[in-house]
């Protein structure tokens, strides 16, 4: 490997009671790369990402950011290092408006005491512009928005932190075709700005449209890793269904074979 990965995970193990959710997983993500994380239900995709962001604590193994070992105790810790996760259900407060949601938990202040509303709404507008999404007004309550627009707000929230890594958990599961198209454009835009992204998804089409690399998990183990340009949807599907940890190849190992 030439450059230093922005994120590396080594030999991650995680149990939930009797369930062995993750076994001995190695993972890496390069700067500006879009990685698709695929696998059947309960393959451990979301769990792996939650271990990465600190929502779950790993039993053993190392998480390295910029080559340094880290111990995140909560998602807040990983956010401080520029990692953002966008949850499947967007994790927004429906009773609050768009501006308040973009600044959820870190509302700008006046005199260190009051919420600085003018500043909050102005910056919220700027972030939405940067993302090129059309939300009617930053004053609109989030619960009155459609699913696609709610997701735009969630993404706007994530990128307003100027993250280096964005993790999407099943981003297209609740979206219409049009909204999916727009989301993929947004991802390309983020990639152009140098943001590394992980997409957890069932839909291979989306990953093959924008992704650089795809990693397949099965029952808590890595069963394959391929560059998108060297593989086909069919091969990835085969890995999902019948791959085993013993026959797993890394993207580099697989590259010459396909080339």
């Amino acid at each position: 490997m030439s450059a230093l990965p922005i994120i590396e995970m080594r030999k991650i193990d995680k149990h939930f009671g009797a369930v062995h959710a993750l076994r001995n997983i190695d993972f890496h993500l390069m700067p500006g790369e879009i990685l698709g994380l695929v696998g059947d239900n309960s393959a451990g995709k979301s769990t792996l990402m939650k271990v990465l962001t600190g929502a779950y604590q790993r039993d053993s193994g190392d998480v390295l950011v910029d080559g340094k070992i880290t111990h995140f105790r909560s998602p807040q810790d990983s956010r401080d290092l520029g990692m953002e996760m966008i949850y499947q259900d967007f994790a927004l407060c429906g009773n609050m408006d768009v501006g308040q949601n973009i600044f959820l938990g870190r509302w700008p202040r006046h005199f260190g005491l009051f919420v600085n509303r003018p500043k909050m709404y102005a910056e919220a507008n700027a972030v939405l512009k940067r993302l090129k999404v059309d939300v009617n007004s930053v004053f609109q309550k989030v619960e009155s928005l459609s699913g696609g627009r709610q997701q735009s707000v969630a993404i706007a929230r994530a990128i307003s932190f100027n993250p280096r890594v964005v993790i999407f958990d099943e981003p297209t599961a609740n979206l219409s075709v049009m909204a999916t198209e727009r989301l993929l454009e947004t991802m390309t835009e983020l990639k152009r700005q140098g943001v590394a992204q992980v997409i957890i998804s069932h839909r291979l089409t989306d990953i093959f449209a924008v992704g650089d690399r795809v990693m397949v998990l099965k029952r808590g183990q890595v069963v394959g890793d391929r560059y998108v340009r060297h593989t086909t949807e069919r091969e990835v599907l085969e890995l999902i269904v019948s791959g085993t940890a013993e026959t797993a190849l890394t993207a580099e190992q697989a590259a010459p074979k396909a080339a």
Partner: peptide, 24 residues
Amino acid sequence: AKTPIGQMIYAVGGNERAARYSGI
């Protein structure tokens, strides 16, 4: 109505998990 404390309260009432994920 005017301070981050109040905003936190509304955020927790609106969606506790979202509030927790955003560091509240």
